Amino acid sequence: MILLVLGIALWVAAHLFKRVAPERRAAMGDKGKGAVAVALLVALVLIVLGYRGAPFINVWTPPAFMVHINNLLMLVAVFVYGMSATTGRLRGKMRHPQLTAVKIWAVAHLLVNGDLASIILFGSMLAWAVAEVIVINRSEAWVRPEPGPAKKDILLVVITLVMFAVITGIHAWLGVWPFPR
């Protein structure tokens, strides 16, 4: 559990660094991007190792139907995340599509995982995404991008379905079957 908590703390610190200490981050120049990237990679490794190695401590038992809600929310999360890269009509409909996707992802996983490590991981990622949005909104004005062609949104739907299949495949490969049996 210690690795999990350390990984989450490093993840949050690395992401908030440029918002909390912008002068210090700017003084690092381009090398700072590399340092933050390394910190995020280390954080991700710690989170994965900590989560996989954490003891199973059941806090609550989610009802079986939550798997369906989780899968629907995950499909929405993948789509919303993709909105950050689209150049279609949906471009600019949402200020923080990646952070919104993290929030949806976290809620979806909290609905189907009732163990302590999951609550710590997904709960803290939800709290981090909420805090990140608040900090960004207070520190930066948003210039809404112009929408592009609708055909790019159709491409986003196709990419969403492919990515959802890849993500469920990875879950199955890791031994977590994401569909009801």
Rank of each mutant, 00 (worst) to 15 (best):
L44F: 15
A26L: 12
M1K: 08
A141Y: 10
Q98R: 14
R181W: 11
P145F: 12
V112L: 06
M66P: 03
V76T: 02
A129Q: 11
F17Y: 13
P145K: 12
P180T: 10
V38N: 12
F122W: 07
G114M: 05
V133S: 00
F122V: 01
H68P: 04
L161K: 09
A9K: 06
A37R: 14
S84W: 00
Y51K: 11
V20M: 08
W142R: 13
R89F: 12
L161E: 09
V5P: 02
L90G: 07
R95L: 09
W173F: 15
R95C: 08
A131N: 01
L41A: 14
I104N: 05
W105P: 02
V162P: 04
A150F: 14
G50C: 11
V143I: 14
F56W: 06
V166A: 13
W11L: 07
G169Q: 06
F65K: 03
W60S: 00
L90H: 06
A85T: 04
P180C: 09
M163V: 10
I57A: 07
L126S: 08
A54Y: 05
F79A: 00
I119W: 02
P63S: 01
M28Q: 12
E146K: 13
V80A: 11
I170G: 11
L16W: 01
S84E: 06
N113F: 08
I170C: 09
S139Q: 11
F164V: 09
V143F: 09
A26R: 14
A117G: 03
T160M: 04
L72C: 04
I134S: 00
A106Q: 11
V176S: 11
A9F: 07
A127W: 06
E23K: 12
P180L: 12
D30S: 15
T160V: 04
R138S: 01
I2H: 05
I104D: 01
T86N: 11
T87Y: 12
L16K: 01
I104E: 01
L156D: 11
L155G: 15
K18Y: 13
I134C: 00
S118I: 02
R24K: 10
A117P: 03
A35Y: 13
M1E: 08
R91C: 07
S139H: 01
A13N: 03
L116T: 01
V38R: 11
W173A: 14
L44G: 15
G53M: 02
A35N: 07
G175F: 04
H15E: 10
W173D: 12
A14M: 05
A43P: 10
R95V: 07
R181T: 10
V12G: 03
I167M: 02
V176I: 12
V48H: 00
I47G: 04
V78T: 08
G32I: 14
R24T: 14
M125K: 01
M66R: 02
L3G: 07
I167Q: 02
V130G: 00
L111K: 07
K93M: 15
N113A: 10
A37V: 10
A39S: 14
R89Y: 13
P178H: 13
G148R: 15
G169A: 04
V38Y: 09
L174A: 13
F65I: 08
P178V: 14
F56S: 04
M66G: 06
L40V: 05
L75D: 10
Q98G: 08
R144S: 05
A27R: 15
F79R: 01
V176W: 15
F17W: 15
R19I: 00
T160Q: 04
I8E: 04
V80S: 07
H96S: 02
D153Q: 07
